[in-house]
Every structure is written in C-alpha cells, then in structure tokens.
Design a protein around this nucleic acid. Structure first.
Lengths: 153, 153
DNA sequence: CGGGCATAGTGGATACGTCAACCAAGCCCA
DNA sequence: TGGGCTTGGTTGACGTATCCACTATGCCCG
C-alpha cells in the first residue's frame, strides 16, 4: 500500500473532479428531463437500443452493453415499458429469456432528445477545451480505467 | 447554439469520461462500505463536520458547505442520527433552526475510514498520473466548472 | 435419464435523490 | 402592531440503485 494522504495539488484536483461530476450530471440530467422528459438512464437505454442492428435485443445483452446489473435493468425497463418507450417480447428459443425493443414513441423521444443533449455536452464541456486537452483527458481516463482493473481490492 | 454533434475524438473522450465516473464511484463506494460501513455520502458529511471549528453546525450551513438541498440533508441526517454517527441539538437563538454535531462514534468512524479511502483514491487515480497530468486535469475541471455557470440553459 | 450447477429475469428491503407542499418562526415595514 | 414575505427544516410521493433471495429454465455429465 502506498502512502495514505494526498498532497495539496492532488487534493485540489480531486475536489475539482468531484465537483465537476456532480454539477455536470445535475445539469445534463435537469435539462434532458425538462426538454424531453427523459432521465439520463432512459437516454442511455434508448441509445443502446438504437445502436444494435437487430430490432430486438435480449435483456442479458442489453445489460452487458450498458454494464448494468440485471436487477437494475429489469426494473428500469419495467418503468419504461409502462411509459411506452420500449416493449417486451417473449423469447421462444430460451423460455427464461426476454426481448426488448424500442417503440415508435421511444424512437421519437430519442430522436428529439439527442441533438439538444449532444449540443449541451459540447457547449459546457468540449467548447472550452483545446484538442490537446481533449486528448490528454482521454489519456487520463484510460489510465484510470486501467488502474481500476489492475489495482486489487 | 453551436453545432450539435460531437466528432470522433470528443465522442471517445466523452465515453471514457462517463465510464471512469461510474467505475470509480462504484469502486470507492463499494470499498468504503465494505471496510467501514459508510456510504460516500456519510463520508462527506463526516468530513464536513470535522472541517468546521465549532463543535456544532447549523444544518443550513452544513447544507451550503456540502452543496446539498435542504431536503436531502434533512433525510440523510435523520438516517445518520439513527445510526449514532451524528446528533442533533436544538437552537435557542433561532427556534426554527437545528444544530448537528458529530458523535464519538462518528468521529471514530471517519478516523478509521479516511486513511484507507484516501489511499485508494491515490492508488487508482493519482498514482497513474504525472504531476503535469494532474495539473492539466485540474485546469480542465476548472474550465468546465466555469462554463457550467456561464453557459445558460 | 436425472441430479446438480449455471443462467435469465423478477421482486422485496433498504438507501438515496428530487420536487413540491407544508409548517413554524423570524423579519420588515406600513 | 400586525399582516406578508423570507427562511429553516420536515414530510410525502415517486424514481432510481444495490443487495439478496427466489423462480424457472437450460445444460452438462455421470
């Protein structure tokens, strides 16, 4: 185990990082909700559904794609079904399984939401950063992601 | 309004950023919970309480410090009181008000948790980054924070 | 074949977040 | 002094996340 504490520079960077996260998510979430009546999670699900080639996806596969626990997915989809954004279909091959597909309404919702959402991300996030900074940030994220897998509990 | 879509580099950086966030928080949260029975929110509250000079803090002030809504604070503190980590005291000056203070148990909990938590942050986050990267990251976070306040809805 | 293990998905308990309604107390000024 | 605005805090409704237990299949191997 390395030395426990963070030095001042790290401390400040860490607090700024935490702060950005809360603020950024709050902002994106609020505006998406206000403009399109979708949560960020709804958005992710709908995007995932439009990114697959098939019209229907197995819940399991969707869960893998989103990196969501099965329980979380099950409950969230139930709510989305109730709102008419997605539909379920039974699976004949594997009677345990279930298919999910996006409805016309869901498609309309994501088509309506995506441009504004992407634009907001650009405005608050990328428009303030240079190309170099974006690349540097990407590198930093990759590094941390790697370490998350490497450093054991 | 700027152009809606993100280019490839931005897209990748954005996905990496989102990914880091989910993973990092999940990891920190899981380990803090497992090792010390605290949530990240408990941790933040306890840290805030130890960072003020007075033994008691007005809820309002605590809310400002944490940037939490009053409702959120009220409910979270109720749970923490129930677990014995903090205590409430009435406020004589302003009979609407309430004081919160950390209990011995809360103090013990945060003292036990802090070193391990900080060490984990260091290991997964900072140990992989150069000093330059940390500074660059800090700058990026500040920029985004600024834009969050500047760019209007 | 059939028992045992793995896999797919649901459901309950509990924690946590927001929003909006609410109450009580302070404050301000005609 | 006494309405009316503001402020401090709680509460209820509801959406969302996690953990864990449970059901129903499917699958593998003796």
């Amino acid at each position: 185990m390395t030395e426990p504490w963070l030095d001042d520079e790290q401390q400040q960077a860490w607090r700024a990082w935490l702060e950005v996260n809360t603020q950024l998510f709050a902002r994106l979430s609020r505006e998406l909700q206000a403009a399109n009546g979708l949560s960020l999670q709804d958005y992710d699900v709908l995007v995932a559904l439009t990114e697959v080639s098939e019209p229907s996806v197995r819940m399991r596969d969707l869960g893998v794609k989103l990196e969501w626990e099965k329980s979380r997915l099950s409950k969230h989809l139930a709510r989305m079904v109730a709102r008419g954004l997605v539909a379920r279909r039974d699976c004949d091959d594997d009677r345990r399984g279930a298919f999910v597909e996006i409805t016309d309404e869901g498609l309309a919702a994501i088509r309506a939401a995506a441009p504004g959402h992407a634009a907001l991300v650009r405005e608050v996030f990328f428009d303030g950063l240079s190309r170099t900074q974006v690349r540097e940030l990407h590198a930093i994220c990759r590094t941390v992601l790697d370490r998350l897998e490497t450093v054991e509990a």
